[in-house]
């Protein structure tokens, strides 16, 4: 069973994502900001990260930069999931090492499509 870390400061979004990902066969963990997420990754590297952009303490982009510096930090497949939906933001995320990018609002169909595109399904 693959693992996915859900990083979002909204509890509701984490809940929705968790439900969809569980149905897709993922074991999930949650983090409410980049710092907590980084901590989780240091303890155990997930197979995938579903990552919000705007969060307190450490945002998604900063988290991604830090993650990729960790030993084994290039392993997780990172899928941004954010309301930022302009080309500049998307480009910045890709440059930082994101594998895919979901623009909110999302549903199970989009999540499934994106996860299978990057080979997670």
């Amino acid at each position: 069973m693959k693992s996915c870390l859900i990083v979002d400061d909204s509890k509701v979004i984490r809940m929705v994502a968790k439900k969809i990902l569980n149905e897709l066969g993922f074991r999930t963990e949650e983090a409410e900001d980049g710092i907590v997420a980084l901590d989780r990754c240091i303890k155990q590297m997930p197979d995938a990260v579903l990552l919000d952009w705007n969060m307190p303490n450490m945002n998604g982009l900063e988290f991604l930069h830090e993650l990729r510096k960790l030993p084994d930090g290039d392993r997780p497949i990172v899928v941004f999931c954010t309301t930022e939906n302009d080309i500049d933001h998307i480009q910045e995320a890709i440059t930082a090492g994101a594998n895919e990018y979901i623009m909110k609002p999302f549903d199970s169909e989009i999540l499934q499509a994106k996860f299978s595109q990057v080979g997670l399904l």
């Binding site: 998307i90 895919e100 989009i110 499509a113 595109q117």
Partner: peptide, 11 residues
């Protein structure tokens, strides 16, 4: 554009 289109292609 989120069903099947890789993000790199969208950009």
């Amino acid at each position: 554009v989120q069903r099947g289109l890789p993000i790199q292609m969208l950009v």
